[in-house]
Amino acid sequence: MTGLPDTAIATQLTPPATSEPRRRRTGDRPLRRFARLVLPPVALFIVLVLLAELVVVSLGIPPFVLASPSAIWTQLVQYAPQVLEATLVTGFNALVGLVIGAVVGVLLAIVASLIRAIDGMLAPVVAAVAVVPIVALAPVLYTMFGSTSEVARIIIASLAAFVPVFLNTLRGLRQVRPVHRDLMRSYAATRSQETRFVTIPSALPHFFTGLRIASSLAVISALVAEYFGGPRQGLGSAITTAAASSAYARAWAFVVGAILLGLLFFALTSLIERIASRHR
């Protein structure tokens, strides 16, 4: 393992997916399973929205405390193009950051898994990055790259995404079971065969777990970075602008956009992770 402090690792790693053998029935009516999975939370969500509406309207709560769901909905419909545009800007920053962070994370994990000395050098640095609130870098980076550039936000998203991808991939690369190593040796397999047939397939599910964790971090970081300055576009900027001009329901409409963006990233990466770790 790396020499990282446990706390840093604990926040970036999920428990191994191989903890217990799971048996799957093929043809377990996927539609019905999907319904059973999705319907309850959706029903709860609707009930909560109705309840919020009832409470806000009946108690006459002012919008700066809590905007009513119907008012938020009206704003969301009215400002749909702006919400979409802001979501695209933030989403683009998060996506580019996620890709950069993942690529660098995988490359450095491969290097660290091959060369012990490099692992020893990288581990403390990654530990430092893991515990630093990365968005705190935002103001510094804005002055470095100019306040009209999105580069600072992309860098912040990359850094946030890098950590879990690096840690999980590195762990995955060390996860090859001894019996598989013995097997490949008994076949007199070459190093590159061993890498292709055993090491990479063993590491893949761990990489995708890291990617899933990284996707949420990338969205959050890209968005929160906007609170500290930079170009006035994107969800974070829109939320602060709307709130500053007392348009609370509109601020909430952009928050809804942020929630949907986060869900999209999470759902896609979770799906990939599931597919990658089907037979474990």
């Binding site: 079971r177 019996v179 598989h180 013995d182 097997l183 040796r185 008994s186 076949y187 007199a188 047939f197 055993v198 397939p201 893949l204 037979h279 474990r280």
Partner: peptide, 19 residues
Amino acid sequence: ARVEQAYGIAFQQAGLLPW
């Protein structure tokens, strides 16, 4: 003998590749 694949081997854990 190993390089020339003179033997086949089976372990206590089946050691199948799960993927």
